[in-house]
Every structure is written in structure tokens, then in C-alpha cells.
Design a protein around this nucleic acid. Sequence first.
DNA 1: TCCAAACCTGAAGAATCCTTCATCCAATAT
DNA 2: ATATTGGATGAAGGATTCTTCAGGTTTGGA
Lengths: 212, 212
Amino acid sequence: MAADVVTAFEPRKMPIQTRATVTVGAICEATIQVLLSHGADRLTTTRVADRAGVSVGTLYQYYPNKRSLLFAVFEDHMEKASQAVEVACADACHKPMSEMIRRVVEAFVDVKMQRADISIALYKVAPDVGGPALVKRTGQRLRKAIEAMLLTAPDLKLSPDRFAIDMMLSAMSGAMRSALEAGASPAMFRKVREHLVLLCQSYMAAATASDN
Amino acid sequence: MAADVVTAFEPRKMPIQTRATVTVGAICEATIQVLLSHGADRLTTTRVADRAGVSVGTLYQYYPNKRSLLFAVFEDHMEKASQAVEVACADACHKPMSEMIRRVVEAFVDVKMQRADISIALYKVAPDVGGPALVKRTGQRLRKAIEAMLLTAPDLKLSPDRFAIDMMLSAMSGAMRSALEAGASPAMFRKVREHLVLLCQSYMAAATASDN
DNA sequence: TCCAAACCTGAAGAATCCTTCATCCAATAT
DNA sequence: ATATTGGATGAAGGATTCTTCAGGTTTGGA
């Protein structure tokens, strides 16, 4: 079942010449733009192709159908966000726990903010593209990275609760989502970042203290 | 602009006879079902009507277009959720702050869980129906209720930060969303509820202590 | 009983959209 | 120079969907 989905979403062909690489890049970028300007339900393959400056046929040379295009853009974004967090996790090993949390949260907020347009655009299609499934997978991946990092914390006696990490991650994405969809200003984002750090720090402290 | 949207979404006619009331109820319920079984992009007015046991024409007698139907269902759900939280806020006045938070969080989790199917279904259409705007409005409404409640807390010296409340609310909805979309079991929901209380309590304590 | 208002029906018009494929252009290797 | 592979085109087929409306059925009061 999952295999079918993946197969159906798999790109049809990889670009070889540089010309084609540019084309594929333009198509992905155009997808974001159309999503932002027209919304998910009025995103058509023709519109995306027009916006990218190519013809529809070209689009279908790389993606077997509309959903696979959306999925590819979505997956790419999640991949980049995951990597940013994983790097932060690796860098924060052996630091005090509150410092770890701070770095992870800041990395997450920053990578989401850096291309806020993509984040916002993708919120609009996630449901139609197996978003929840991909989000779940990414969540597990991030949880492992955070778990590994926390095990190296010098000031942490109890083993960290898996569930608490999931909780923290979902709270993080919830907070970022509403900030992004509200069209928050850069100043506002700094405040969100600050408070999100506080939120995660105080929760993780409480969760590791009174364990069950 | 906002007026246009509201106008375009406004129901076309209110049911008068009980027969019609039943019909409208069936249509709304069918909308949820179709959303769950077919997804947002394959929800058609005909399918909804079939599922409701009426003809398409009947549907268009009450809703001027597809979006207005989706919007109505969405709005109704938000209204109920808001009321549940507001009641909890009213009941928790003059209690200690941690008790206030506990009640609000539990009310929120419970009302979302009670009809988890609706919550999940609506996540799929929110983007196409002015979801963010409605969510924003509801958020402000809830923030006011919580703010008013917190002002009556005997153990709270500093005036509560508006921003912190927004933060708490978005974290709450994020956590609930991922639990719902993951198809969490009742046991899992109890745990989520427990931890979400802890998360909000520890955050609010921290936010009201070190203020800026 | 009888009528007007409320309600329901569902075929069909009109519009939109996804996807294909026959055909042509460009790049690269031989 | 030529063959081969990669890349691009866009009109058109096929399918789906939204929405209407002319005409039928049910309800409730006079």
C-alpha cells in the first residue's frame, strides 16, 4: 500500500543535461508560486507550466501526475528541514539540556522562516498528498535525532521520554504553523522563537523531572 | 474583501420544516463522511448528496456552492469547540492558575476528541475554505476568554502576556492535530491530555515569572 | 378539502482539468 | 558530419465536476 503510493509518486525521469535541471527547478519554484497566488484547488498543471515558462508536456516528462509533483516539492522541503534540525542536534551534543533545546528549536524556527513562502504554500496541499504520513515519518526521524542528542546531556539523569519529544515536536510545528499562516513579521518571528525556546525548555524540564 | 467572502459563503436558505432540518443535517454529516472516505480533492457535491440520500439540487437549495458547504461545516465545528473552552474558562475563574490551565486544556482536548472524525476531516479542507482566517478569529476569541479567566487567578501577580496565550493555544492545536492525524487510541489521548496539561502549565508558569 | 409555500428531483449545460503523443529542436558522442 | 539520445511542444481526447432549472411531491394551514 505504502509502496504503491511511493511508486505512483516517483518522478518519471531524472534530468541529465543542465538545461533540464534548470527546467525542473523552475517547475518546482512555479508550483510554490501558483500555490501561493491561486490556492491549492486552483493549481493546475497547465498553470504551473506556464508560470515556469515551459509547456505542460515538459512537466509530464518528469512527473507522472499532478500529485507526484506536489509530493516532490513537499518531500524536498521536509528533507531540508529535517537536515537542519539533525545538524543542530549533532552540534549540540554534550551541552547542557537547556542549551540543546534552545539550539534545536532555533534551528527549526529558522529553517521554516527562511523560506516561509514554501512552508505556507505546502500547508495548503499537505492533506492531498499524503502529508500526514510524510509528517509522521519525518517526526520519527527527528525524534531519534533528538533522543540521541539528549542521551549525551551531562545534566540529565532520567532517560528522556519518547512521548515527551513527540509532544514537543508537535507543539513546535503547531506554533510555527500559526505564526506562518498569520503572516508574522520578522520581529514577531524573533519573539516566537524566543518563547518557543522557553516553552520547550520548561516542558522538557518538567517532563524529565516528574517521570512515570 | 472579508465581507465578500462571508457573503459568498452564506447559506442560501434556512430550513423551515422539520423535514428540511433533517436534510440539512444529513448533508453536513455526509460531508464529513465523504471527506474521510474520499479525501478533500475528490469530494464532489454529487457524492455528498448521494451519501446524504438526497439529490444534488437539494444541496444547492441550502448552499450556493461547494465552498459554502465546507465553510458551514467548518464554522460549526469551530463554534462548538470555542464554546466548550469558554465554558471551561468561566467555570475555572478564581481557581489557582495551574488548575485553570488544566481545565482549559482538558476541555479543548475532550471536545476535539469527542468527534475526532470531524476534526480530522476538517484538517483536509481548512486551507481551501479560508481556514486560516477563521482559525485566527477563533484564536482571538479564545485568547480573550483565557485572558479574562487568568485575571481572576489569586496566585498570579503579573498581568498575563497576550502573546504567551497565543503561543499556548497554537501549541495545543499543534499537539492535538498530530495526535488526531496519527489516529491515536483512547489510551494515547489520555496521555496526550496529561502531557499537554503539563506542557501548558510549565510554560505559563515560566512565561509569567520571567516577564519582559 | 384545497391551495400556497416549502421541498425535492436529476438530467444536462457549461466549464475546467489531467494527461497523452506525434512531432520537432538541441546536445553530445562517434 | 551524422546518428543518437535528451529535451520541449501544445493541440486535443477523455473524464470529471459544478451548478441550474423546469417540473414534480409533500406539508400545513384556511
